[in-house]
Nucleic acid binder design. Structure first.
Lengths: 338, 338
DNA sequence: GCTTGTCCTGTAAACGCTTACATTATAACG
DNA sequence: CGTTATAATGTAAGCGTTTACAGGACAAGC
């Protein structure tokens, strides 16, 4: 690989002059500029980013860390990131933490934040790990956390109003005439699950609706056990007329379970989900699921552009933002009025 | 951010000693090691990767460049990359080129290959762009190209046998009693489309089957126009009994089109795809598509591990490999014997 | 006691770049 | 013609590491 030194020698100028040409500074004579550019072209020179990052303390890139990049849930979010980065001068790199493994997560965060990127977007549950939070707390790179409101962390936050989303969902079911509404909860250790659960509980209470025995089911791993929980619900003496699920992955399993029991959705049972996940794995073939949508595309775009703005305007860059996004109902084919 | 110099000062040792401790070299006395480690912990020190990369000419990371990371087509491939990287010491970063834009692609490749990663995996069509090929030709980082066989490029290649896959698909349809077999082709400027088309043509000829007028349709953008092409085919005087599609995105549109015309799949018309794409966008609700599967997960794993091996064994690392992967038939629900 | 070897530690150069500062050449001005 | 401003270029330090080499302390062997 040719270095700036090679260019300087070949062109008969100093290192500084070559650097000036590379960085398009205007205090170089046309004659010298052309000579240097010719040599750069001839030798196929490209500046070394590590060296640049070292001296400039700036990499012009942004990192994104998510838990299982392959998960179709990220479809809109990734599109958001891609579009947010378009027309900026920043390179965006994605890192995937397979299975959400904490060691790997920590490794990637440290890797990125030490001379590789200028800012990082984090998605996923980081609450559980004290080490990561305390590391982030005194890191000097800019952060944006999506869907994770860690009080002791003073960084940019892009959050979803899960509680009110849940409330909205339940109220919609009620408005459609349902009162026997069951709930299949996600992993109860996650904050998001608790928020959605609380939205369900509070709304049921608010409208004086009874939550019969067994109406609240907890999935262990969201995708798989939703199927069994749904079958359980459908066998209850007082069978719910509507089942609200903590996310669409669960809801899709619930629909499949109902169909496998020869129940029609939504004629025999209404089902609602959360996330409005347009891409579902495993060849789901039920009706499109009525769901509370998160504006993931918008959040993806916003998080990148927010960081770019902060990086480019160093003075205002110190103040972090906290934005809560509303969910919205997307009415499809799994809820019927009774 | 604390630097090695701060640690050295605080611990009362030289820079070299700190470096030795960081890199777990054994020629440091226990007493000094502990002292240095304590300071490192106290100051929350982490080594700067840019500085390291500069002096070591090694980043311990691998880059991946694909064309639209959000595309569900990449589901298995990404899982492959993730799993291939697991248990290695390399960090893997993904870069997405939105819309396959050539400028962006070049930018990302140059970014990665100049001091950011040690090796790069490329997926997608790079044939079209001379600049990128010639850049790659005299780059010093290791490359692995997936699904793109560029003769003048001496790098690792992981290829799909599209021709024989297509042959296999058509022979299967023939074995199921079909002889009026139409083909919906993908973008004919792509090599992969040509290979699959040739597989279809040669197999039809081999079995002396007539390709009626209009039986070969070309989609412009694979996802959208497949729908219209299918409708066109279904209106032909000599309506094909089977339609073989260049990929599953097209096939899913074809199935939808057939269903919208009140044709049953596979009772009224058989449809085959290519790629065995398990995750389809847009709430596809037809039957699971019989398709030729690419071993994308395996290719993902292999490409990372191949590069890791080459990087770790510098002596054998010079010889590049070229591996052609066979596709395999996955029989689902869109082909019927007649 | 001197040499030799071993173990630990320090010194300083190097990686490839940017940039503050110095220097030189040239033009402008009285 | 001397002074001064302006523009173009060069010199050298520094970014945070690693590592070849040197040096010192100490034990072992003669």
């Amino acid at each position: 690989m040719a270095t700036i030194k090679d260019i300087a020698r070949e062109a008969g100028v100093s290192l500084a002059t070559v650097s000036r040409v590379i960085n398009h500074m205007d205090n170089v004579s046309d004659e010298v500029r052309e000579r240097v550019e010719a040599v750069i072209k001839r030798l196929g020179y490209n500046p070394n980013n590590a060296a640049r990052a070292l001296v400039m303390k700036k990499t012009n890139s942004i990192g994104i860390v998510v838990n299982n990049l392959h998960d179709p849930f990220f479809y809109d979010l990734i599109r958001g990131f891609e579009n947010g980065a378009k027309n900026t001068s920043y390179n965006v790199v994605f890192c995937s933490v397979l299975g959400g493994d904490v060691e790997t997560k920590e490794r990637y965060i440290k890797y990125l934040t030490n001379g590789v990127v200028d800012a990082v977007v984090l998605y996923g549950s980081y609450l559980s790990d004290e080490r990561i939070v305390s590391y982030l707390k005194d890191s000097s790179v800019n952060f944006a956390m999506i869907e994770n409101d860690i009080p002791e962390l003073n960084c940019n936050k892009l959050l979803i109003d899960n509680y009110n989303g849940s409330k909205h969902a339940v109220e919609y079911l009620i408005s459609m005439g349902h009162s026997d509404i069951a709930y299949i909860c996600g992993n109860p250790n996650k904050k998001v699950s608790v928020e959605r659960l609380n939205g369900y509980l509070d709304t049921m209470h608010k409208y004086n609706l009874n939550i019969s025995d067994g109406y609240i089911q907890y999935t262990t791993s969201s995708y798989q056990s939703g199927y069994d929980k749904m079958k359980y619900l459908m066998k209850l003496d007082r069978r719910p007329t509507a089942v609200y699920c903590a996310d669409d992955a669960i809801a899709s399993k619930a629909v499949t379970a109902a169909m496998d029991m020869n129940l029609r959705v939504p004629e025999d049972v209404s089902i609602m989900g959360f996330d409005n996940q347009t891409v579902l794995p495993d060849g789901y073939k039920g009706p499109d699921i009525t769901s509370m949508a998160q504006p993931l595309f918008e959040i993806g775009v916003d998080s990148i552009q927010l960081l770019v703005n902060q990086l480019d305007n160093k003075e205002t860059g110190s103040e972090t933002i906290r934005k809560v996004y509303d969910t919205y109902l997307v009415d499809k084919d799994t809820v019927k009025r009774i």
